[in-house]
Amino acid sequence: MAQSAPDTVDFRLEAHRWEHRLLFVFTPTEAADQLRAQKDALAEQDAGFRDRDLLLITLTGAADGTVREGPGRDAQPLTNAAVTRLYDRFNVPSDAFRVVLVGKDGTEKRRDAEPVTGRSLFDTIDAMPMRQREMREENTGGE
């Protein structure tokens, strides 16, 4: 039986339900212009990712993928099986660029065919009822 490299992650959506929001960036190649634009748009957004419990998952050409806690954080490689499952789950062709946001409830909240800005992404998240509740709890937590 083939073993995964010890540092690979067999990423499963259900393991993150109610814990994390997930931003999937599907790209045909690591050199795609849209991927570079997406990375630039999310650069310096680590604090926003942390505040919103948002993980960044980048999937390349239905073969490679990484998960990280934010755009500038260390990436952990995904298993090939996890990459295949995610492409299938979100019905993304391996030659397409897509950005998919999944809420803590495990449902898709947003899908874009072009890179998204950090502000646009955070505005979408901040409008979600669960995020509204989190922000209220943060504001009253110190009392």
Rank of each mutant, 00 (worst) to 15 (best):
residue 56 L to K: 08
residue 90 F to A: 04
residue 61 G to D: 02
residue 82 A to C: 06
residue 96 A to D: 10
residue 99 V to R: 06
residue 77 P to W: 00
residue 79 T to K: 14
residue 64 D to R: 14
residue 119 R to L: 13
residue 84 T to F: 07
residue 103 G to D: 04
residue 56 L to C: 09
residue 76 Q to D: 11
residue 64 D to E: 13
residue 111 R to T: 13
residue 57 I to C: 02
residue 81 A to E: 02
residue 113 A to T: 07
residue 110 R to V: 12
residue 77 P to L: 00
residue 87 Y to M: 03
residue 90 F to C: 00
residue 117 T to I: 05
residue 57 I to V: 08
residue 102 V to Y: 01
residue 88 D to T: 09
residue 65 G to A: 09
residue 107 T to D: 15
residue 95 D to F: 13
residue 63 A to N: 10
residue 105 D to G: 00
residue 110 R to A: 11
residue 92 V to D: 02
residue 75 A to H: 06
residue 90 F to V: 04
residue 103 G to I: 03
residue 113 A to V: 05
residue 102 V to L: 01
residue 91 N to C: 13
residue 89 R to F: 05
residue 87 Y to C: 02
residue 69 E to V: 12
residue 103 G to K: 02
residue 120 S to E: 13
residue 88 D to M: 00
residue 109 K to T: 01
residue 65 G to R: 12
residue 94 S to H: 11
residue 91 N to K: 14
residue 92 V to A: 05
residue 100 V to N: 02
residue 73 R to A: 15
residue 62 A to M: 02
residue 76 Q to M: 09
residue 115 P to W: 11
residue 70 G to R: 11
residue 108 E to T: 11
residue 91 N to M: 14
residue 112 D to Q: 15
residue 102 V to P: 02
residue 117 T to C: 01
residue 119 R to C: 00
residue 115 P to I: 11
residue 65 G to D: 07
residue 107 T to E: 15
residue 73 R to P: 12
residue 56 L to W: 10
residue 85 R to L: 07
residue 84 T to A: 08
residue 68 R to M: 03
residue 117 T to H: 01
residue 56 L to F: 07
residue 64 D to Q: 14
residue 100 V to A: 04
residue 61 G to I: 02
residue 105 D to H: 00
residue 71 P to R: 07
residue 106 G to R: 09
residue 80 N to I: 12
residue 102 V to K: 02
residue 96 A to F: 10
residue 82 A to R: 04
residue 89 R to N: 13
residue 75 A to M: 09
residue 94 S to F: 13
residue 65 G to S: 09
residue 118 G to Y: 01
residue 111 R to L: 12
residue 99 V to H: 08
residue 74 D to M: 08
residue 75 A to P: 10
residue 57 I to S: 01
residue 76 Q to P: 06
residue 111 R to N: 09
residue 62 A to G: 07
residue 114 E to L: 11
residue 59 L to Q: 00
residue 64 D to M: 11
residue 93 P to K: 15
residue 69 E to I: 10
residue 119 R to N: 08
residue 73 R to W: 07
residue 113 A to E: 07
residue 104 K to D: 10
residue 88 D to S: 00
residue 77 P to V: 00
residue 96 A to H: 11
residue 120 S to F: 05
residue 89 R to V: 11
residue 108 E to Q: 09
residue 63 A to H: 12
residue 114 E to K: 14
residue 78 L to V: 14
residue 118 G to F: 05
residue 93 P to C: 12
residue 113 A to D: 08
residue 99 V to D: 06
residue 55 L to P: 03
residue 93 P to H: 14
residue 83 V to P: 04
residue 67 V to H: 10
residue 98 R to G: 01
residue 73 R to E: 15
residue 107 T to V: 14
residue 91 N to I: 15
residue 108 E to N: 04
residue 82 A to Y: 04
residue 77 P to D: 00
residue 95 D to W: 11
residue 60 T to M: 04
residue 75 A to E: 10
residue 74 D to C: 02
residue 58 T to L: 05
residue 59 L to E: 01
